[in-house]
Amino acid sequence: MGKNGFRLSTLDVVLMGLGAAMYAVFAAVTYFIPIAGMSLRPAIAIVTFFGAAFGPHVGFVAGAIGNLLCDFTWGEFWWEWDVGVGIIGLISGLWWLKNKGNYEKGIDYAMAAILSVIGSFVGCFFAGFVDVAMGVPFEVAIYAWAFPGAASDAIFGLILTPALLKAYQAFKLR
């Protein structure tokens, strides 16, 4: 952050765009990894990873635009969930402010995993409460939509984010 506010580099713009597109591709194709009869979406790990590796700004935009692209493929417009997924990316990227995407120690990976869990809950519950405010019944918005969404995102965030970060750390040396 400079004195003129946040300067977005060209690479940031491209990473945001590719992150969003990849989230949309994964959301479209991996809706059925069968676990105990539930269909879970690992796509969220793309957003948590982009946040953790390239910063909260990249995480937020990749998540929000990625989910908007999903809206375009489903034919519905759930802006509150677009923002919610953005928030997941944003919170996952908070540790980046400290380590600038350099994942060397165990603490880095632990923080990325923890933040992606926190982010999943904050993001999904944000969307849930907006739904409530818009008139969706509390039980539907929170118990049927926000909570399962948050739980599933949190699990994938927790397991996949560190794995992706580890690969990225090695890839940087190429």
Partner: peptide, 8 residues
């Protein structure tokens, strides 16, 4: 960003 996402 939207353009890049749609392009790729």
């Amino acid at each position: 960003v939207m353009n890049i996402a749609l392009r790729y």
